[in-house]
Amino acid sequence: MAQATQAGTPVIELRHVDKHYGQLHVLKDINLSVKKGEVVVIIGPSGSGKSTLCRTINRLETIDSGEILIDGQPLPKEGRKLAELRAQVGMVFQQFNLFAHKTILDNVTIGPREVLKKSKAEAEQEAMQLLKRVGVDSQASKVPAQLSGGQQQRVAIARSLAMHPKAMLFDEPTSALDPEMIGEVLAVMTELASEGMTMVIVTHEMNFAKRVADRIIFMDAGAILEENTPEEFFTNPATQRARDFLESIQAH
């Protein structure tokens, strides 16, 4: 469901970003720009740095050099400014990371209540709408451990949406799910994309990437090797590395 991208300041921009883990060069001169409403899918083999890249955007990972801009503003390095920025960028994790001691409803309301200082009633009303939208409103009073992985991940998406983010980051959102639950999470994400949410998605789901992405980023060994439309990338990859990768995942 690729949409025409809008002009203007990119929502997310990375300029010459480098990062090392000791001797290991995990991000090599990364340049990336994501416009409003754009869906960018990052793919690549394990250890290629795609998750790290995704996590630098809200500074869950620090960078050694280069620049990250959100809405044209440099990403703050610490304190209140950084927290305020993180509140505007949603994050969905591979392991869901729902707050284990809180009910589903409280998981969705805690952000708006603690950070946006919304009233309990207002936060709960909106949370119920969001839970309904992702199809888990009937589970609102349960705790995360009582839900299936697919349900938990949909709650995690609702938790992010409750903050009204400018953009959302998805770090392998279906990699920890049983196969029969992947579809329900991807369906929610597809809907978000079609509504114009700006998204950066790290995933191994190639069919989903084909369907939803405006642009595919192919990474290997910490560098972006290709950046192309899904049609071009999947039918006619430019590098041998990408051809090998696509072949290896289509082999089974």
Binding site: L85, V89, M91, N97, G111, E114, S160
Partner: peptide, 9 residues
């Protein structure tokens, strides 16, 4: 990580 991603201090 989930908590700081929501903007909590």
């Amino acid at each position: 990580e989930a908590a700081i991603s929501l903007g909590m201090r």
